[in-house]
Design a protein around this nucleic acid. Sequence first.
DNA 1: CTGTATCCCCACGGATACTG
DNA 2: CAGTATCCGTGGGGATACAG
Lengths: 127, 127
Amino acid sequence: MHLLVSIKMNEKTLAPSPFICGLDATLHVVGGKWKPLILHFLAGGSLRYGELKRSVRGISHKMLIQQLKMLERDGVVSRTDHGEIPPRVDYALTPLGHSLCEALRPLCSWGDQHTETIAAMLEQREA
Amino acid sequence: MHLLVSIKMNEKTLAPSPFICGLDATLHVVGGKWKPLILHFLAGGSLRYGELKRSVRGISHKMLIQQLKMLERDGVVSRTDHGEIPPRVDYALTPLGHSLCEALRPLCSWGDQHTETIAAMLEQREA
DNA sequence: CTGTATCCCCACGGATACTG
DNA sequence: CAGTATCCGTGGGGATACAG
């Protein structure tokens, strides 16, 4: 009895983890509709803004810029402006970004394996 | 030369894949803020509505019901109403759901490994 | 306890125009 | 080509009340 009593407090008044689990934490970084896709296409190597725009089909100009900024701020993507004219800007994954992308791969495979099934779902949704 | 010419068309006027890649397809199923978390907590076995509500901390009543319906419709989650009073309803992963959850695991691990880093990000965002 | 139905706000996100 | 700024609609999603 009296097991686990009196847990040592941290210095900073014990800030409880803001996440309910690891997955939750991850989603704070790659949550949303576009971020995973952006990372996915950067996995093959650095891309210019335009290339990225064309790769992530359907994304709007505004969204791409915005999401890239977030990803850069979070240390997942790096941005290098070559200071040329016309502008030439490359986006690439940081080491952290690569590791995250790695964790994303199973989701890609899963999607590949079930594309048919999922496509069928979408049609059924409208009905 | 003339490689890959004259690709055989499908019967149904060749409906081009609605997805830009496997990952995109996956996101049509577990996209959004809550679905991944719901699946994650169901991975340990079936849960009642209330248990799920408490597990996925922060989710609203409306959202949980709504997302569960979608997951059920998409064949990822199964719902069993025991027809009792008071009501007793269990939610569980289907085989498809389990495979998807499996693909989600690396994201959990990634989050676990970088919790500190991510927590730091969040604070920096406000600044 | 589980689920349905409303009200309602805000921010997500698209379209467009403009700058360097 | 890359990026910023603005306008503006839609719907995501919370709070609440109610039913079985």
